[in-house]
Structure formats: C-alpha cells, structure tokens
C-alpha cells in the first residue's frame, strides 16, 4: 500500500457484512467483487473515494 493511501477495511467475515452487494455496484472503479459470502477487494486500484463506505447500509466498510 502506498504510504499516502489510508487503509480500507471491509468487515466481511459475517460480523457486520450482510453481503448485499451495494458496495460492489457503487464503486466507480470496480474494485470490489462479491461471490455469495466472499468479498474480494483490489487494494491497488482503490482511490479511497469512500463511496462504498456511504453505500454500505450497515457500516461494514471503514477507511482509516
């Protein structure tokens, strides 16, 4: 991760995430992918625009 980038964490172990796919659909760069209950996130493309953070209805995505 480049030093100027903040970290983005998707709590997708099931504690928070309800696998609704909202984050996948809103990401302008297509860097999140959901397959049933598995989320993959492409750290390198993500610009930390925080759109997915807003879209997540339950607050499972955090940018630190």
């Amino acid at each position: 991760m480049p030093p100027n980038k903040r970290s983005l964490h998707i709590e997708s172990s099931g504690q928070l995430c309800i696998y609704c796919g909202a984050c996948v659909g809103v990401c302008p760069l297509n860097c999140i992918y959901l397959d049933e209950t598995r989320i993959t996130f492409d750290e390198k493309i993500c610009t930390r625009c925080e759109i997915c953070v807003k879209a997540c209805p339950v607050g499972a995505i955090e940018i630190g």
């Binding site: 909202a22 659909g25 809103v26 992918y33 959901l34 759109i51 879209a55 997540c56």
Partner: peptide, 22 residues
C-alpha cells in the same frame, strides 16, 4: 445492480452519488 458486465464492455454505467440509494 452490481453490474460488472457493462463496465467490462466499456459501457458508461457509472452513476453520480445523487443517482444511487443505499
């Protein structure tokens, strides 16, 4: 809504913030 296909095909499917609901 997750719509990867459109983006892979290069179609302009991205939305403005005001055009999406959570």
């Amino acid at each position: 809504f997750e719509s990867q296909i459109g983006r892979w095909a290069g179609l302009p499917t991205n939305l403005a913030l005001r055009d999406m609901d959570s």
